[in-house]
Structure formats: structure tokens, C-alpha cells
Design a binder for these strands. Structure first.
Length: 248
DNA sequence: TTAGAGTTTCGTCAGTCAAA
DNA sequence: TTTGACTGACGAAACTCTAA
């Protein structure tokens, strides 16, 4: 099972995504700066072991952030090793959902729309109640969401679904399970199935939407890091030049 | 213009997990 | 134990691109 790797990646990844969403995140101070010798100056070690003092405005401090992040991941791993099994299982077995990740994102960045869960619930309830109370719906896809009739675009596999024709005259039994005729029982099962399918359909849509946003955030993050990397390389080159001139 | 390949989108199923 | 939410995998349909 390779899922054991994902939580660490995800925990650091969530930070990265959050940072990636906000391009100014590089301006924020790192959680710790081990090579910082004074408030305005950072010490950078060159390949020959010597050190050079760099103004704090330099982007060279950013790798420290990464180092610290790696250290935090290592810490996390250590903590996990001593945590109880249930907690570890919770950490290792499942990655956070896109909903969680994106909700975190949205709390950091107002540009990302937060998922209105209450609204979604209301819509679902509405859909369910309409499915249950509709006098004679021709199809659940027409009565519930209103999407398909609006576009007139009902996929063929939905039309030929074995359930699509069975949703007529859905009536709730007065006491489900006690005095239910076979037909009512079948209708109840059918209705439950249709509700489940409808919810799952919505969930799949939402999941895909979240996934897209998530991938976009990753791409943004990659772009930011690539730029940063380029700047760092140039800066390192300049510093080496300065050092070589001094040495001569 | 059109046939076919490649890509995208969508619904469904199955499996997992957390909460009740 | 049951239930609901979430998400990967799969197949089907729609869409896009390209060579003939």
C-alpha cells in the first residue's frame, strides 16, 4: 500500500497550495531561519564551505523555508511514529478530500469560492422532497434538478436506465417496513436508488470541479517555484562572482 | 467534407472512511 | 452496524483535431 506516503505529501502540499494561491506568500517570513545571524542579514554557505552575508531581501532565504518545511515533515513523521495506532491510521490511510483542501484555500483566499454546504443540502432536500411529492413526474431527471429539461440534453444511457421509467407515482408508505405491499416496497427501493444516484451524480460533479481547481492551484504553484528557482540560480551566480573577485 | 483518432465530460459503481 | 460523503475507475457519449 503506497498510501502511507500521501499524508506527509499532502500536509506539506496543503501548505504549498495555500501559498501557491497567494503569490505574495513569499513575502511572509519563514517560521524559522537557522542561518539568519542578524535581523537584516542572512548567511549563505558557498560550495567551498565559506559563507557570505546576504541582505534579507534576497530570495535566497526562500530555500530555508523549504528546508524548514522538510524539517517539519520529518518532525511529523517522527510524531506519527509515536502516535497511537488509530491516529496514525487516520493520518496515513486517507488523503484529505478536495473539498477540505479547497475550503482551506478559500478561507485564505476570497477569490476561491467557498462551498456552501448548507445551500447544497437545501437543494438536495428540495430535490428529494420534490421527487417524493411530485404528482406524476415523467422522469426524475426532469423534476429534480431542472438541468436536463432546460437543455433538453438527456444522455442516452439515462434514458435507457432501468430506473428512469419507474419513478412514476412515488408514494411514501405510512409506516415503511411494516404494512408495505410488494409494489410499495419495490417503489421505495427504486426511489432510494434514484435519490442515491442523484446525490452521487452531484457529488461526482463537485468532486471533479474541486479536482480541477486543485490541479490549477498546483500548476500555479509550479510556475511560482520555477520563477523562484530561476531567480535563486541567478542570484547564486552573482554571489559567486562577487566572492571570486574578492578572493583574487 | 468526412472518417477516424484522441480528448473531454458525465454518470455510475465500488470501495473507504467518519460519524451517528 | 448503518449511513452518508467522497473519490478512483470505468464505460459511453460528445467534442475536437487532422489527414485524405
Amino acid at each position: 500500500m503506497d498510501t502511507s506516503v500521501s499524508p506527509e505529501l499532502d500536509s506539506s502540499f496543503n501548505d504549498s497550495v495555500t501559498d501557491g494561491e497567494d503569490d505574495h506568500s513569499e513575502d511572509s517570513p519563514p517560521p524559522a531561519a537557522p542561518l539568519q545571524v542578524s535581523p537584516g542579514v542572512t548567511v549563505v554557505q558557498l560550495c567551498d564551505g565559506q559563507t557570505v552575508q546576504v541582505p534579507q531581501t534576497s530570495v535566497i532565504q526562500s530555500p530555508q523555508v523549504q528546508t524548514v518545511q522538510i524539517a517539519r515533515v520529518a518532525e511529523l513523521q517522527h510524531d506519527e511514529s509515536v502516535a497511537d495506532t488509530q491516529q496514525r491510521r487516520a493520518l496515513l490511510s486517507r488523503r484529505p478530500s478536495y473539498r477540505k483542501i479547497l475550503n482551506e484555500l478559500s478561507s485564505d483566499s476570497p477569490a476561491v469560492p467557498k462551498i456552501d454546504e448548507e445551500k447544497m443540502e437545501e437543494e438536495e432536500e428540495e430535490a428529494v422532497s420534490s421527487a417524493a411529492s411530485a404528482p406524476a413526474p415523467t422522469s426524475i431527471y426532469q423534476t429534480d434538478s431542472g438541468q436536463y429539461p432546460a437543455t433538453g440534453d438527456i444522455p442516452a444511457y439515462q434514458l435507457r436506465s432501468p430506473n428512469s421509467g419507474l419513478s412514476h407515482s412515488i408514494v411514501m408508505a405510512a409506516s415503511p417496513g411494516s404494512m408495505q405491499s410488494p409494489s410499495h416496497h419495490t417503489e421505495n427501493i427504486t426511489r432510494k436508488r434514484e435519490v442515491r444516484l442523484m446525490k452521487n451524480r452531484e457529488a461526482a460533479r463537485e468532486c471533479r470541479r474541486k479536482k480541477k481547481e486543485y490541479v490549477k492551484c498546483l500548476e500555479n504553484r509550479v510556475a511560482v517555484l520555477e520563477n523562484q528557482n530561476k531567480t535563486l540560480i541567478e542570484e547564486l551566480k552573482a554571489l559567486k562572482d562577487i566572492y571570486c573577485h574578492k578572493a583574487e
